[in-house]
Amino acid sequence: AVSDRLIGRKGVVMEAISPQNSALVKVDGETWRATSGTVLDVGEEVSVKAIEGVKLVVEKLE
């Protein structure tokens, strides 16, 4: 799938994300809905860990 190429890519949080709420991230110039197990604020850099349906699963870039 096209989205599989995004695993391992870096992105930027466009809307705050919490474990209860998905929000938008920008990866390679494209906007995607994403979820995370932690709270992520706007502007934080993230890494794509997986794809669940049409959502990216991201975590904060260390």
Results as ranks from 00 to 15, higher is better:
I17Q: 14
V12C: 10
V48T: 02
G8A: 03
I17T: 15
V46S: 01
K26E: 10
E52S: 10
R9T: 05
I7V: 08
V27G: 01
A16E: 05
E45P: 07
V42M: 06
T38D: 14
R9K: 12
G37D: 15
L56E: 02
S22I: 12
G37H: 13
G37N: 14
V46T: 01
Q20V: 09
A50F: 06
L61Y: 10
E45R: 09
L56K: 01
E15I: 08
D28I: 03
E45V: 13
V48Y: 02
W32I: 00
A1F: 12
T35L: 10
S18K: 08
E45D: 06
V27L: 06
V25D: 01
D28T: 02
A50M: 06
G37Q: 13
V42D: 02
E59T: 08
V39Y: 14
L61V: 11
L40K: 00
G8D: 03
G29T: 04
E30K: 10
V25E: 02
S36I: 04
G11D: 02
V48A: 01
S47R: 15
V48F: 02
V13P: 00
A23C: 13
N21P: 05
V12Y: 09
V27D: 00
N21K: 12
L56R: 00
V57A: 04
D28E: 07
K10F: 10
G8L: 04
E59S: 07
T38W: 09
R5I: 07
D28A: 07
K49L: 13
A34Y: 07
S36K: 00
V2T: 09
T31N: 09
T35V: 13
R5A: 08
D28F: 04
V48W: 02
L24R: 05
E62S: 12
V54N: 15
E30M: 10
K49M: 12
T38R: 07
K60G: 05
W32C: 01
S22Q: 09
M14K: 03
V54Q: 14
G43L: 04
E30Y: 10
G43D: 04
V2N: 10
E30F: 11
D4I: 13
E59I: 10
S47V: 15
E30T: 07
V42P: 07
I7F: 05
D41P: 06
E62D: 11
R33M: 15
E45Q: 10
I7S: 03
L56C: 01
P19E: 12
L24G: 03
S22L: 13
G29S: 05
R33V: 14
W32K: 00
A1E: 10
R33G: 09
V25A: 02
A16H: 08
T38E: 13
V13L: 08
G11A: 07
R5C: 11
G43V: 01
E59K: 06
A16N: 08
L24D: 04
I7H: 03
K26Y: 13
D28V: 02
N21I: 08
I17E: 15
A34E: 02
R9E: 04
T35G: 05
K60Y: 04
T31F: 14
V54L: 14
V58H: 00
V54I: 11
K60R: 12
S47Y: 15
S22F: 13
D41R: 15
V46K: 02
L40D: 01
I17N: 14
S22R: 06
L56N: 00
